[in-house]
Write a protein that binds this DNA or RNA. Structure first.
Length: 348
DNA sequence: CATCCACCGGAAATGTTGGGAC
DNA sequence: GTCCCAACATTTCCGGTGGATG
């Protein structure tokens, strides 16, 4: 064991997808969540919080604690971004049967409704903004009127997405979700999480407190903070110091982007690359026209088939929802209709 | 005040895949 | 197999936007 040069004894606790068994400073929220999923007092709910505040982990943790009296269903809307794909997930969760495309949604709704009368279901629609953006709110509308005692919905989204504005009125009133807000962690809390995860993952005394403090003073996003620590730990053979952490900042951000884009296409990656290059080369601001042009040049240099600008426009919206870029919309003016784009590297 | 910029973004079209009924 | 229906990714089409410019 001591011959292993790596600092990492158990990789799992450092990985962002690992649901922790304990949370720092979230006992109020956990209590509220318990009420929201309790069959006695349950209702639909929406969880709102910035990226990396623990929305997903809190709900999944709650799912683990539920007795077998309820079917739980996790729907990652980044991947399940249409009514049908989300329904498919739900169908599989309640029937334990795989299905492919070609079925009528009305059939699926009916069968799900029948199944949930036998056993209630709790559906977690994570990153709901991607489904809304791509396919509208018909899924939420239909589910919110289905068997309301037996089927409860939990949505998770960032504060930039206001369900009341994004949903049709009839959908919102039929859903009338209870709101649970997650405040971002401050530097001290981020540090506590990093300390806890380091202790569970790394060899004793392999990390300087200063290193963790530095990460925590740079970002409130736990997903990024953990990725950063993990990236540094993988590259370090001896103690993780503040200098090591500073040195790997850019690499860590790259790893974070890779993680965020895992569910997306190579075109998303090329778009990010185009934006990075343009930012390094010239003076801001960057407009969409230049980005599309650079994207086409990049596609050609990699001998890949480019997609249309209309499609890229949608992909840019994805990057914005992921908070990898910030967009300022100009609906006309000197430059015509366009978007001013900025990468989020400095603001994360 | 007319005209222009140049992409936004809704909607329809296209082409492909798969299910179920006959 | 044939026919019709639905889902889906992507393209094609195009009306619309508001500040600068003359």
């Amino acid at each position: 064991m001591t011959s292993d040069p790596s600092l990492i004894e158990d990789p799992a606790p450092l990985q962002t997808q690992t649901v922790p068994s304990e949370f720092i400073n979230r006992s109020d929220e956990i209590e509220k969540l318990e009420q929201l999923v309790d069959p006695e007092t349950s209702s639909n709910s929406c969880i709102v919080g910035e990226r990396g505040t623990g929305k997903t982990h809190l709900v999944l943790h709650q799912f683990q604690k539920l007795p077998g009296q309820v079917n739980t269903c996790y729907v990652p809307c980044k991947r399940c971004d249409t009514e049908y794909k989300a329904l498919k997930q739900l169908y599989q969760a309640v029937t334990r049967e795989e299905i492919s495309t070609g079925h009528h949604t009305s059939t699926l709704y009916r069968e799900i409704e029948e199944k949930t009368t036998e056993l209630p279901a709790l559906v977690f629609l994570d990153d709901i903004e991607f489904l809304l953006q791509n396919d509208g709110d018909s899924l939420l509308y239909q589910l919110s009127r289905t068997n309301t005692d037996q089927l409860n919905l939990i949505t998770a989204s960032t504060p930039g997405t206001n369900l009341k504005d994004e949903l049709e009125e009839r959908t919102y009133s039929s859903l009338h979700p209870r709101r649970l807000e997650l405040e971002p962690y401050d530097g001290e809390k981020v540090c506590q999480v990093l300390v806890q995860r380091s202790r569970d993952s790394l060899k004793p005394q392999s990390v300087h407190q200063n290193a963790l403090t530095y990460i925590a003073s740079t970002t409130q996003n736990l997903t990024y903070a953990l990725t950063w620590l993990e990236t540094t730990a993988k590259k370090s053979m001896d103690k993780i110091t503040e200098n090591k952490v500073r040195e790997y900042r850019e690499q860590a951000y790259k790893d974070y982007i890779d993680k965020q884009l895992r569910e997306f296409t190579r075109h998303h990656r090329l778009l990010i690359q185009a934006i990075e290059e343009l930012e390094k080369e010239g003076e801001p601001p960057i407009y969409t026209g230049e980005i599309y042009q650079r994207y086409h040049e990049l596609s050609e240099s990699y001998s890949e088939d480019p997609v249309s600008n209309r499609r890229l426009s949608t992909y840019l919206k994805h990057l914005e929802l992921l908070q990898l870029i910030e967009s300022k919309y100009h609906y006309g003016g000197q430059q015509g209709k366009t978007r001013e784009i900025q990468s989020n590297y400095q603001n994360i």
